[in-house]
Design a binder for these strands. Structure first.
Length: 860
DNA sequence: ATCTATGGCAAGCCGA
DNA sequence: TCGGCTTGCCAT
């Protein structure tokens, strides 16, 4: 409905036509990429933002979404009667009957569509009327309309062209070699599956445009230090704005202030502009915001753009003059698109799967440092006290880093965003601000609509499929998860680690798992049981979820992952393939999780349970098989097993057994020269053949422990990396002893400074919200609050263990004299013991010998 | 108008 | 003093 109603004449850029000076045509040109669709619910209009790479402009189309209907499934005769009487209602236009497939019942249902004359009638008195006469049906489908691809199947992030006033997806054919690859790889699959493969490939292989964009950062006068300016009040002046764009143009706009000195330094790389008053400065910002299709910020939703908006209001601007729109939690632009990179990098799935947890703190500085390797300039005072030159450099650094976050690795982040748009069918604005569950929900809804399948309500799924039957090991969880094998403590040489290539998605594919196929309504299927669980799976119909996740998995594992390693391809092509591979990884890893999340609209507990259940079954069987082949399994977790000195033949046997018996691809993931296990699960260390060391779960690596411990621990690690054979251990052990001793010595002599001693723990709520207990970092945070600091959720509290009665003090308030050396010695002990144990070394013994030695050295 | 899941460890809090 | 519970961080 949305797209069909767009005609040539309606495609006019509205209030921004003046700034599109080089485009006289009002139609959307061939190859314009759809970046965003937003709906204004109250006005029943949609705003389409399309980007045309050639002119680097955005085209806006404000489109009437027309007569939004209500759809109800399976109304009774009486209800239909009542609706017929509605025909006299002034809001009523017409009624249509159509058919949809109900996946839960596996049958066709009749849909009743009621269309209102006046779109505004919906949500008003007319809708109340409908609710009154068909209360049951009212619940049916309202959620149906909240999706961005209503009715028309619009591909976000894809190029369109205009033909006869309609938007059409630009044609694109897969290259012949890819086509034949696909044919070869998937010839065993059925037609539906192959069709999915084909359409995914098209989505991923379409060209990805480079988007013209600017990064923006503002500085605000700061009368009180340690106090973050409030973007809601916007009381202080905006003193500087920095901009970095795709043309590498750097600009800094400065507010003239009488007391500020110019200062010294080189500014030849920057265009610096002075403004006599703030209003002019803000006008210039507005001009810029209307000039770029994409504006990047780091935390602009909450700060920069919000501040500019409110500041503008304070200075007497009218709302319609401001090219910014405030939402509750986000800030958008009237012309272009605002990407708040903070929100994107905040996304857990992105952090873990796309960036392998490279950054541990969510500040521009930390993210930039760990991803780009560049840090920010630290300033001692508030920006207000800087000279102009200092201010320019300081402010510019922020937007430069922000910009670079989207350019490193051949524009990895921008490409990631576009590929995600294409899979999830979501506009940028929402995509970067919402979590992975929304992405998957949207993707699933899109497929339902495309195939004319009724989107079920959560209540219906829950009612039909029921709750879980297994008990979790951890208290308070909903169902049983994965198996972790008890490790065999000690040092093991020659370890091969095998794992299943994306275990859970494989299970979803192979066992045909989907909310509609598990516990399906056919009695014949009840024999098709899932191992060790009281659930059966349909063998009459292919599950939608299963096909979608399965095809995505196969594409990633069988094609993209392989192509990334194909060095005959160009670097940029491999890079592109890597982007797709990463994107799929993010989605696939979340695919099982969402099914077990209450908030997910297709929440289906037995499904999630079946996935982990089959997972447990698979790894258990594999371990049994390994043992029967005479291989010793030293450890295993969820989808991996660690084998001690297996022969190539044994491995081959195991791999082919898995392929044949389980239908799953078991692979060699990595090989350790040796590994060190303690008695603890999820705690080990593995040394690769090249000497690199994998550290898993050990305390010495965790984010919150003091730096002095981390450094000492890493010293030990590098020594372990040098060990090549059992005989090397003796020398290594001596070196390790030395490390621990010197560390202890330095502790005693108080040679570490406060920042090396500080524990760094994130506070996840505001301090007053901790009611059940008051952990130490919260105690420290409260001291900070008393001292006038502002503490927000997500802040990292750095504190020292001290001898005062609280036991802690924040680093800002502590002195070296108060340090509780005993406590730190205990940390030293527990951190190292995890490894020492396995090396059959003893911490106290090391310390004991130390006493003797120092006795001798003192005596001599 | 949102926030994938469970398993496991260390440390500390706090009531019994 | 003990043990259950809370918190944060990590593995998969």
């Amino acid at each position: 409905m949305l797209m069909a109603s767009i005609t040539r004449n309606e495609l006019h850029p509205t209030h921004v036509s003046s700034i599109q000076n080089n485009s006289t045509s009002s139609e959307i040109p061939y190859g314009s990429y759809v970046l965003s669709v937003t709906y204004d619910g109250s006005k029943r209009t949609a705003c389409l933002k399309m980007y045309y790479p050639k002119t680097r402009k955005i085209f806006l189309s404000h489109d009437n979404t027309g007569h939004l209907p209500y759809c109800f499934s399976n109304l009774s005769k009486e209800e239909l009667e009542k609706i017929n009487k509605l025909r006299n209602h002034p809001g009523f236009d017409h009624m249509e009957l159509s058919k949809k497939y109900d996946p839960l019942m596996d049958k066709e249902v009749v849909m009743t569509k009621i269309v209102a004359k006046d779109p505004l009638a919906i949500g008003g008195r007319y809708s109340n009327h409908i609710r009154d006469i068909i209360p049951k049906a009212w619940e049916a489908n309202i959620r149906y309309y909240n999706c961005y691809t209503y009715d028309q199947q619009l591909f976000l992030g894809m190029p369109y062209r205009v033909e006869n006033g309609n938007l059409l997806l630009a044609e694109y054919h897969l290259p012949q070699d890819i086509n034949s690859d696909m044919k070869k790889l998937f010839e065993a699959e059925d037609e539906t599956f192959r069709n999915y493969i084909d359409s995914w490939m098209k989505l991923f292989q379409y060209p990805i445009p480079s988007i013209y964009r600017v990064a923006l950062d503002i500085e605000v006068a700061q009368p009180v230090e340690n106090r973050i300016p409030d973007s809601r009040e916007a009381k202080e002046k905006i003193i500087a704005v920095s901009l970095v764009d795709s043309d590498k143009k750097k600009r800094v706009l400065l507010l003239k202030r009488p007391s500020v000195k110019m200062g010294k330094g080189d500014l030849s790389q920057v265009d610096v502009e002075f403004y006599d008053n703030e209003k002019e400065l803000i006008l210039e910002i507005f001009k810029i915001l209307n000039q770029y299709p994409v504006v990047l910020t780091f935390n602009g939703d909450d700060f920069d753009l919000r501040y500019i908006y409110n500041r503008a209001l304070n200075l007497g601007f009218q709302r319609h003059m401001i090219p910014i729109e405030l939402q509750l939690r986000s800030t958008s632009l009237k012309y272009g698109i605002h990407i708040d990179l903070y929100k994107f990098f905040f996304n857990k799935a992105i952090q873990i799967y796309a960036f392998r947890k490279k950054y541990s703190r969510l500040t521009l500085n930390s993210v930039a440092k760990s991803i780009l390797g560049i840090g920010k300039i630290e300033i001692e005072t508030s920006p207000s006290r800087l000279t102009y030159v200092e201010l320019v450099n300081y402010c510019l650094m922020d937007s430069e880093l922000t910009f670079q976050l989207t350019t490193f690795d051949d524009e990895l982040v921008m490409k990631l965003i576009i590929v995600l748009m294409r899979i999830s069918k979501m506009p940028i604005d929402d995509l970067i601000r919402q979590g992975v569950s929304s992405w998957i929900r949207n993707l699933m809804y899109f497929e339902h609509r495309r195939l004319n399948i009724l989107i079920p309500r959560s209540e219906d799924i829950l009612h039909l499929k029921g709750q879980t039957t297994t008990k979790s090991i951890i208290k308070g969880k909903k169902f049983k998860g994965a198996i972790v094998v008890n490790p065999k403590p000690g040092v093991h040489f020659n370890i091969a680690v095998l794992d299943f290539a994306s275990l859970y998605p494989s299970i979803i594919k192979i066992y045909n798992l989907s909310y509609e196929t598990i516990l399906c309504s056919h009695s014949e299927c009840k024999l098709n049981m899932i191992p060790d669980l009281p659930y059966w799976v349909c063998n009459k119909r292919k599950g939608l979820f299963s096909t979608i996740i399965g095809s995505l998995r196969d594409i990633r594992v069988k094609w993209y992952k392989k192509k990334v390693k194909d060095y005959s391809l160009t670097r940029s092509l491999r890079n592109l393939y890597n982007v797709v591979q990463l994107t799929l990884k993010v989605l696939l890893n979340a695919s099982y999780g969402v099914m077990g999340a209450e908030n997910f609209t297709l929440y289906c507990p037995p499904l999630a349970e079946a996935v982990t259940g089959i997972g447990r079954y698979s790894i258990t069987k594999t371990i049994e098989k390994a043992n029967s082949l005479g291989i010793e399994v030293v450890y295993g977790d969820t989808d991996s097993i660690f084998l001690k000195s297996p022969t190539q033949h044994q491995i081959d046997e195991l791999l082919s057994w898995s392929e044949k018996e389980l239908g799953m691809e078991l692979e060699i993931d990595k090989h350790y020269r040796y590994s060190v296990f303690s008695t603890l699960k999820k705690n080990y260390l593995g040394v690769y053949d090249n000497g690199d060391v994998d550290i898993k779960g050990l305390t010495g690596k965790k984010r919150h422990i003091p730096d002095f411990l981390k450094t000492a621990f890493m010293e030990m690690i590098s020594i372990l990396g040098e060990v090549k054979s059992p005989s090397d251990f003796e020398r290594a052990k001596i070196k390790i002893k030395k490390i621990i001793r010197t560390c202890n010595d330095k502790l005693k002599k108080k040679q570490y400074n406060l920042s090396e001693l500080a524990l760094n723990i994130m506070i996840s709520k505001t301090p007053d919200k901790y009611v059940k207990t008051t952990p130490q970092h919260v105690k420290a945070a409260l001291l900070l609050v008393n001292a006038g600091y502002e503490i927000r959720p997500g802040d990292i509290i750095s504190f020292i263990k001290t001898t005062n009665d609280l036991g802690v003090k924040p680093i800002q308030l502590a002195t070296i004299r108060e340090v509780d050396t005993n406590k730190y010695r205990n940390y030293l002990e527990s951190t190292f013991e995890q490894v020492l144990d396995a090396l059959s070394m003893d911490f106290n013994e090391i310390m004991g010998i130390q006493k003797l030695e120092s006795f001798f050295s003192n005596a001599s």
